[in-house]
């Protein structure tokens, strides 16, 4: 089983300098834990001191924000596309 994860520029250094990586997990939380196994230090970059996902970091499953799904318990399956994207300004 393998899920493609898009990595934003500020996280690429900790993820082997890659734009996309493969990882496993049945939920977003498990996927992020797996990424921390593969790339030590990953977890502390995406979670804040209180153990919540950083508030300026958004996670999408097949282009839908996980906050519209089930947050970190959102289920994912083989072939899904996950994107980690910093919040950006707008107009």
């Amino acid at each position: 089983m393998s899920i493609t994860v898009r990595i934003p520029a500020p996280l690429q250094a900790v993820a082997g300098n890659r734009l996309e990586v493969e990882a496993d997990g049945g939920t977003i939380a498990e996927l992020l834990a797996d990424l921390d196994n593969r790339f030590p230090g990953f977890r502390q970059r995406v979670y804040d001191e209180t153990g919540r996902l950083r508030r300026f970091l958004n996670v999408y499953v097949n282009q839908e924000d996980i906050r519209f799904l089930s947050g970190e318990t959102t289920p994912i399956k083989d072939g899904d596309e996950v994107s980690i994207v910093p919040a950006v300004a707008g107009g």
Partner: peptide
């Protein structure tokens, strides 16, 4: 296709490329 938030996410991803 989609709302502004989708457009913004696309652009954030394009910046890295």
């Amino acid at each position: 296709k989609g709302n502004y938030d989708a457009v913004n996410r696309l652009c954030a991803e394009l910046t890295a490329r």
